[in-house]
């Protein structure tokens, strides 16, 4: 029974959360109230912190952790599967349509317009992310800006350098400088 509920709740969030991992958050908050025995809003705050400090997409991490805290290993697996299933099905259909029609002039025009728009949206995420990491609470963090400048210089100078090296440099700088 608990597994059925777990499946349904995460399937529903997977189906209705549009626009990336953090869009699952409101659904998780709702779960706190509908299933107070699963997890509380304090646990949820912990889960968000944990998801942000472990690798992998945040939505997936939260589903795994929530499922695990509710019903152990099987719960973690099931919640993740349920979260992924709707988008897996939808994207398989979308990919089929895209592959079929991408040569058409109309679809080509639509994506030609969408590409700069998505680039702009990503630039906005970058601005918000930069503000929260280098200008937290309205105070400029000069060390942070230095680390950013160094990482940016590295990324643009050594174009073939794997991104993980820059991430590791960031982690080391965080430990020793920040």
């Amino acid at each position: 029974m608990i597994f059925l509920q777990l499946f349904w709740e995460f399937f529903r969030s997977g189906l209705l959360a549009v626009g990336g991992g953090l869009a699952t958050l409101p659904f998780l908050y709702q779960m706190c109230t509908t299933h107070p025995d699963w997890f509380t809003s304090a646990t949820l705050a912990d889960m968000i912190a944990i998801s942000e400090s472990t690798p992998g997409p945040i939505g997936i991490n939260m589903a795994t952790y929530a499922g695990f805290s509710v019903a152990g290993l099987a719960g973690g697996l099931l919640a993740t599967f349920a979260l992924v299933l709707p988008s897996l099905i939808i994207i398989l259909i979308v990919a089929r349509v895209y592959t079929k029609f991408r040569q058409s002039a109309l679809v080509n025009d639509v994506f030609t317009c969408l590409r700069p728009v998505v680039t702009g949206v990503i630039a906005c995420v970058l601005v918000n992310l930069s503000l929260s990491s280098m200008y937290p609470g309205g105070a400029v963090q000069w060390y942070g800006i230095g680390v950013f400048a160094f990482c940016t210089a590295l990324a643009f100078t050594f174009k073939r350098l794997h991104p993980i090296f820059i991430i590791l440099i960031g982690a080391a700088a965080g430990v020793f400088l920040l």
Partner: peptide, 9 residues
């Protein structure tokens, strides 16, 4: 630190 490096990337 990682969050800052990710901004650069």
């Amino acid at each position: 630190g990682i969050r800052i490096a990710v901004c650069a990337l």
